[in-house]
Each structure stands twice: as C-alpha cells, then as structure tokens.
C-alpha cells in the first residue's frame, strides 16, 4: 500500500506536466481544404532560431532573442470549404487542457459566428509562461500554443510590431511549404 502511494506521488506531478497531445486535433485536417501544422520544440526550435537571419530576415536579432526563451511552438490551422466542417467540441480537449493548467483567459471576443480567445500562462515576475490562442471562424480554425518565457513586449512583437513575414509572402517565397498551402505536415519534429 505504501508503495502505491509512492507511485501515485511520483506519477501525479508527471501526469500534470504532460503536454497537450496535438495529434488529437489532426483528424480535423482530413476535412480541411488547407492545413498548417507546425511543431517546434527543444533543439529543433533552437536550431530554427539559429537560422533566423540566414536569408536576411529583418528583425532577426529580436526574434532570436524571443525564441531563445521558448520551449515549444505549436500551430494548427485549418481552412474549410464550407461552414460546419468542424465544431467547437473538437477544440474542447485543448480548452480543457488550458483550463487545467495555470492559464488565464485574457481575451474572449465573440462576434456572430466568430470566437477568439487569448490565454496567458502564469510565469516568473514580469514574464508569462506561455501564450495560447484559439481563433474560430465558420470556415477557419486556428490554434496557437507557445510555451516558454514570454514577456508582454514579446506578445506585442508577435502581434505585429516585428516585421514577421506575412503568410502570403512566405507562401510565395516557398518558406511555408506545406503550410497553408495544402494538407502536408510542416513539423519541425517527427510526429510519427
């Protein structure tokens, strides 16, 4: 009995630390017209940061500094041909995961059939532990999950003060191959 308690005491915090299984959302890609699927974590994320500026990316230094503090970047976005190809129930497991953690919903906007939610994770002083975004439109669904130390200034950078290339520009330049351009995965890590 004592051993069982020891196992439970060890297993419970480990279970709490388990990240969200983004593969559970991948089924949505089967019905999507376009899918963006990015998973970058650990060494691959830092490798990506090291290559910022390799092609003359503007603001590379600022981006590098921000990314160097991150643990993981997960983006899933789907574009559908018609309304009703997904439901908010599909997103519920992700919401439940966020709610169970130390995340606070800082923005919730609802307009007709559009919903946008922004969550921030509690972190060290003057810093957050991550940012998550759920953006649902009738024919588009986007989930962004960024974990790691991030400041409010970084969130500002992410939302526009940095010269992050536009998706269309990335598509034209071929940088976003597999992203927003078809159903291929664009993982930095092998999910399989």
């Amino acid at each position: 009995m004592r051993n069982l308690w020891i196992v439970l005491a060890v297993a419970a915090p480990l279970a709490a630390q388990q990240g969200f299984d983004f593969k559970s959302l991948d089924k949505l890609g089967a019905q999507a017209k376009e899918t963006t699927n990015v998973t970058l974590e650990g060494p691959t994320l830092q490798l990506a940061a090291n290559f910022l500026g390799a092609d003359g990316d503007s603001d590379a230094a600022s981006l590098k500094e921000m990314v160097s503090k991150l643990k993981g970047v997960y983006v899933r976005a789907w574009e559908f041909d018609k309304d009703g190809m997904y439901s908010m129930a599909d997103v519920e497991p992700f919401r439940a995961y966020i709610r169970a953690g130390q995340w606070t919903r800082v923005v919730e906007v609802k307009q007709e059939k559009e919903i946008s939610e922004v969550y921030l994770k509690a972190g060290a002083a003057q810093q957050f532990g991550g940012v998550a975004v759920i953006d649902a439109e009738p024919r588009e669904l986007t989930i962004v999950y960024i974990e790691g130390n991030i400041s409010i200034a970084d969130v500002g950078k992410l939302s526009g003060t940095l010269d992050i290339p536009d998706l269309d520009v990335l598509k034209r330049g071929g940088a976003a191959s597999g992203a927003k351009g078809g159903k291929s995965n664009a993982n930095g890590k092998n999910d399989e």
Binding site: V73, I146, S159, L162, L167, L170
Partner: peptide
C-alpha cells in the same frame, strides 16, 4: 526549421 518557425510566427501574428 527556420521556415516552420517563420510560418508559426506568421500564423500567430495574423491570428
């Protein structure tokens, strides 16, 4: 990996 990161940042930015 850098291209994936830029894609992720671009999606985050637009969202």
């Amino acid at each position: 990996a850098r291209n994936q990161l830029l894609t992720a940042l671009a999606v985050t930015n637009s969202t």
